[in-house]
Design a protein around this nucleic acid. Sequence first.
DNA 1: TTGTATGCGTTATCAA
DNA 2: TTGATAACGCATACAA
Lengths: 357, 357
Amino acid sequence: MAARSTLSKEPNAAGRPVSMADLARELGVSMTTISRALSDHHSIGPATKQAVRQLAKKLNYQPNHLAAALRKGKSTLIGVIVPYIEGRFFASVVHGIETAARKAGYSVIICQSGEDVANERRNLETLLSAQVAGILISVSINTTDFKHFEKVRRHGVPLVFFDRLPEGDNVNAVVLNDREGACQATRHLLEQGCRRVAHFAGAQHLNIYKNRRQGYLDALQSYGIAPDESLIKNCSMTLESGTACMAELLALPNPPDAVFSAGDTAILGALQLLKNRGIRVPQDVALAGFSNEALTLVAEPNLTSVDQRTEEMGQAAFRLFSDLLTAEGAAFSQRQVVLQPQLFVRASSLRHGSVPA
Amino acid sequence: MAARSTLSKEPNAAGRPVSMADLARELGVSMTTISRALSDHHSIGPATKQAVRQLAKKLNYQPNHLAAALRKGKSTLIGVIVPYIEGRFFASVVHGIETAARKAGYSVIICQSGEDVANERRNLETLLSAQVAGILISVSINTTDFKHFEKVRRHGVPLVFFDRLPEGDNVNAVVLNDREGACQATRHLLEQGCRRVAHFAGAQHLNIYKNRRQGYLDALQSYGIAPDESLIKNCSMTLESGTACMAELLALPNPPDAVFSAGDTAILGALQLLKNRGIRVPQDVALAGFSNEALTLVAEPNLTSVDQRTEEMGQAAFRLFSDLLTAEGAAFSQRQVVLQPQLFVRASSLRHGSVPA
DNA sequence: TTGTATGCGTTATCAA
DNA sequence: TTGATAACGCATACAA
């Protein structure tokens, strides 16, 4: 057995992954030199750097992030908790987060709460155990107690909420201006000549639905129209729920001439019912939804909807995390990023003029 | 300052996370005992176990997965690489993977290749650096060179492909029986009395599209119908592409009376064109797609489609990984799990009888 | 500019 | 049944 190295230990005899120690032995330098060369430290000569890098490539050296993270006390992992990953909204936000994170050298661990606060708590523990550098979360629908977020603060891990957040504004968050979006959509319906505009309202303990309802009321007020409680339906935002709400509205002595729904799926349910009953959309009843889901372009007529800037939301959430990292006392800061919604006007609400391309 | 402990070092004076050493000091036992008590080792007395657990809870001890993983050489992280996370298919598979993984105590790191093999390579490096216990991947559309997967094998990290896989069957994979699904869909169209069934074919270097095309041909053959190349269109599976392909088919001297598309979005494009031209669906042209996307239930008429068992695919992929972990020589095994597709018949293809509920 | 030595928090080996 | 000690791979304080 011819020893290539003059040192006592064989350089990585087994199939074990090659470490910095292996590189050091092979080159006859110290681990410090290797470490610094690879991280482009200024105190290493260009020649040495070159040599180290070449050998690293040749031996197929892969840095062990785990070890680095353990040593530094922080990993390059960030945790993301969403109610569920299916459906356009969260998938798209996660896409935005992941893209931004990867550019900055972070990887994303994804967790689903399944709309259950118990899972949400477990997810948080998992992420903290994984020593993530930060946590980005959209809370589950039944999260009304927020004690579990305190623990994250105590660990000093930056916490960013997006879209859905706990009550009270003392958190870091990226949200859409839901109120403004809802107001725009409702005003648009009013501009089309509608005067009895109904609203499908979502669960009011969630900030997003509360704000959409408020935006709806804002628009009415700006037109001097008193809100009619019989035109505001509590809706679970499913297709069936939308159909049921529409049926109730049609049964009123004085039915609406437009509906603004806090979600797209529900407004699709309404559309289907109207078509079944031979009621014309938008001539008899104009429709507008919220989220700009893919289905808005499949339904006939195409559905007017408020876009939630999902990609931007993801990117902004990561950026906020990133800012918190470098900021002082970040664990107790409370920055809010508010994105501006965009109304897409389509045939379901357009009584005059042509449909925009 | 009253010292609670008789040992020299203060137990976790600073706000630093509490470690096993802290627990050991506090209880006056060794770290070994703590470690074993927490992992429920048989050699620890029930009383000691109880005491350790209580203290751990009281002091809010969080295990450091990083350290454990470093020591054990394997983490409880698994990496998943998909072309993109948006869209029902991959989001749903990821959902299945994440759910199965979490039950087994694993967390999921998600990476997107953006349909680019260069990113795919980078993703693999990242995951290997993170010391993941396994990698689950659906290759990007331009992956034709498979050398980068060799490295994963050399690291001894189990590798599972799902849906899209490299050419050659020498890999671990979970796939849908695309050929069977396509055959079922086409046979269904033939059973409805259609005799000139066209096909929108996807990129033929991908196993999934090649197999769907083959299934289409199988069905024709079983009916003794010779394939007509003019009825097979290369399609990129976008809406526009579907519209364009349909237009070309209608321009034929002898146009088709049915279309089976390897994707749902393209068949929607076809549907829209047919409706614009006043051609009846399914009476004049019957339509069937593949993937059972949400849009199949929004389009009018509802679209017949082949369901890909996305959740099961995710679960099966994780299970396969899990099996490989315990198996011998897993790095070089090549197990294949094949899921059976399910055809959902809807109005777009149903010429006789009523639409199923 | 480079090297030495130590510790991050855990698990495993050995001895008691 | 328990304890002392040595790794895992990397980054840094300090010394040269």
